[in-house]
Computed example of a mutant assay.
Amino acid sequence: MFLFGRNGVAQGARLRALRALYRNFNEQNGPEARARRLLREWLSSEQRAQFDADGFFEVTGSHTGRRYRIHQGTMGNVLELDERMEPKIGWCFLPDRALAIGDVMLAQKIALETDEAAVLAIAKPFSRRLPSVPQAVRRAH
């Protein structure tokens, strides 16, 4: 009763503060935040530094020793790297149910590092380059 008094100005300020507190709590303790913390715990110190600096981290495949770059995201975010550490081809694979971004990235990391062959057997390859925009479309804009 004392939290929401009759004073309209004070009541509005209290409600805004309460909403901000709730939003802040959810941002720090919601599913996305928990998934990101778990991912960071599983990353090596080098991977964590790379993720913090560049928004991606690299892993080594368990069977072939190929290098993969996992970008933040849930689909189309895994790139196989060539000898010069440039993206060669993309691989699309993800868990069969909806998960937070950090959980998907962690699943991709563990899968590539422990059973690369099984992952590549089910993953869909895609070109690392965006499709080119047709000339007629370019002129229209």
Rank of each mutant, 00 (worst) to 15 (best):
M1Q: 08
F2E: 12
F4H: 06
R6M: 11
R6K: 12
V9W: 10
A10M: 09
A10V: 11
A10Y: 02
Q11F: 08
Q11C: 10
G12T: 12
R14T: 14
R14H: 11
L15I: 15
A17W: 03
A17M: 04
A17V: 06
L18E: 13
L18D: 13
R19L: 12
R19Y: 07
A20L: 11
A20Y: 06
Y22S: 12
R23M: 09
N24P: 00
N26H: 15
N26T: 15
N26P: 04
E27I: 02
E27Y: 10
E27C: 01
Q28V: 06
N29T: 15
N29E: 15
P31M: 09
R34N: 07
A35Y: 03
L39N: 08
R40A: 13
R40M: 15
E41Y: 10
W42Q: 14
S45K: 05
Q47I: 07
R48Y: 08
A49V: 10
A49T: 13
A49H: 09
F51L: 09
D52P: 00
D54I: 03
D54V: 04
G55I: 04
V59C: 03
R66N: 15
Y68M: 00
R69E: 04
R69S: 08
I70T: 01
I70Q: 00
Q72F: 10
G73W: 01
G73F: 02
G73L: 05
G73D: 04
M75K: 15
M75G: 10
N77E: 01
N77C: 14
N77Q: 03
L79C: 00
L79Q: 01
E80Q: 15
E80D: 11
M85V: 10
P87F: 02
W91K: 07
W91E: 06
C92E: 15
F93C: 12
F93Y: 14
F93A: 11
L94Y: 12
D96Y: 07
D96E: 12
R97M: 11
A98L: 12
A98I: 12
L99Q: 13
A100Y: 04
A100N: 11
I101M: 09
G102W: 03
G102K: 00
D103F: 02
V104Q: 03
V104H: 03
V104E: 02
L106G: 02
T114E: 07
E116L: 05
E116R: 06
E116C: 00
K124M: 13
F126A: 05
L130M: 14
L130C: 10
S132W: 09
P134C: 09
R138I: 15
R138T: 12
R139T: 14
